[in-house]
Design a protein around this nucleic acid. Structure first.
Lengths: 221, 221
DNA sequence: TCGCATTAGTGATAGTTTTCTCATAATCAT
DNA sequence: ATGATTATGAGAAAACTATCACTAATGCGA
């Protein structure tokens, strides 16, 4: 049997589907069609079916999907059938904001500790957590079996934080900002870069107006 | 002449290239090859050249690119030759963190005002800004010629905030969280969903271990 | 000045992701 | 039961994106 690579876009959409479905379930909806999911989250119905088809057959022809079951299947696919302990490195503004972010807890992510190497921040309280010195990272990671680390330190320290997390046994990292981090093969890294997102906006604004395609793409010769 | 659509991934990479190049420039580097850029940001050299080729010819064969010139060209493409006034709606944890985020200012984004509809937050100071009631949004947008809005309100209020921003004349929105917003054709919207990013990590962790493909893809019948 | 090493630019190719189309299966009304 | 209707699942096609491989400049050293 051929093992299909699952596109990352599919994984992202599954996350979106599951949250849409949870809203439906809360409203008492028990059955849903790919068409309704598609409408609800802004993709095509075929896309919804294809995304699910990577993992099995979850629907009933002529009927649709059981909301409850589909939520369960997707959460299982995403590895969200249990909660995940998470550590956060970097107790600055962003780190503090993320600690307070309800969305994480709602999805089963449990921030168990926050670390920093700045003496001014160590000992400070964020939510119910005391900011710990990074030296204690290995110990906490081992104690809680933490596999996921969120890095919200300045760009220049990102690699250092990543190294420390990996050495402590963490094998999945979420980084912020433009830094490129190098990690061993077995470690998964994803990045959020807010400036990129804003620059996609300005590109679209600028492109539409200043560089009308018929000028901009004029071949040289 | 055929008008090429520029992949969004290309725009994202241009943003990354430009920041890498700015680091080089700071270190006194004057010339760079596609190979060196590729190494520096973790893509292929051909990718770098292709990305640039969407917009023109910026290099010299046998030599490479002038760091200074290439920075200038990319910033122009991204619409970053002038600063952009930005408004932020939602003075919660995330909004507060974004106000303090240096990365925005470094790239020419200037948060000119923060709004909220929560009386407990209105009047509060964030950085040098006083949180204003959303009623004043149209006025501020008009005054500063704001075209970009960042929405950091709870999911249930996202559409409302978007509507208000659009009605005030903003035509580019950055939203956070899972909400799907509906806007007129001419408005650009991009979204940052941090839960998705974490769930891509858990998918990878779970997938590798719990669902080995040879089990997971077993056909139903 | 000539030839060699280097590197951008580009058309062709390969690979990936999305969309399309239709056969299949289930429900419902008669 | 049976036919009409609905909606999934899946293979094919289309669209899109990335890589490859080659050509064309350019600089440098002999």
């Amino acid at each position: 049997m051929k093992v299909l690579r699952v596109p990352e876009a599919t994984v992202s959409r599954l996350s979106i589907y599951s949250r849409f479905l949870e809203r439906l379930e809360k409203n008492g909806v028990t059955t849903v069609s790919s068409n309704e999911i598609a409408k609800g989250v802004g993709v095509s119905p075929a896309q919804v079916r294809k995304d699910l088809a990577y993992f099995g057959e979850f629907g009933t022809r002529g009927v649709g999907y059981s909301v409850k079951d589909l939520i369960h299947y997707i959460l299982k696919i995403l590895g969200l059938t249990h909660t995940w302990p998470v550590v956060l490195v970097g107790a600055g503004n962003l780190g503090t904001a993320l600690c307070a972010y309800r969305g994480f807890r709602d999805r089963g992510f449990n921030i168990v500790a926050v670390f920093d190497n700045d003496l001014l921040k160590i000992g400070k309280r964020i939510q119910e957590l005391e900011v710990l010195p990074v030296e204690r990272l290995p110990e906490v990671v081992a104690e809680h079996g933490v596999r996921i680390g969120i890095i919200t330190v300045p760009q220049s320290s990102t690699q250092e934080a990543a190294d420390l997390l990996v050495k402590s046994g963490v094998d999945a990292l979420l980084t912020f900002g433009p830094a490129v981090v190098h990690v061993p093969e077995h470690v998964v890294v994803r990045n959020v870069d807010l400036s990129i997102k804003l620059e996609i906006l300005t590109f679209n604004l600028a492109f539409r107006e200043e560089f009308h395609p018929s000028h901009f793409f004029e071949p040289k010769g």
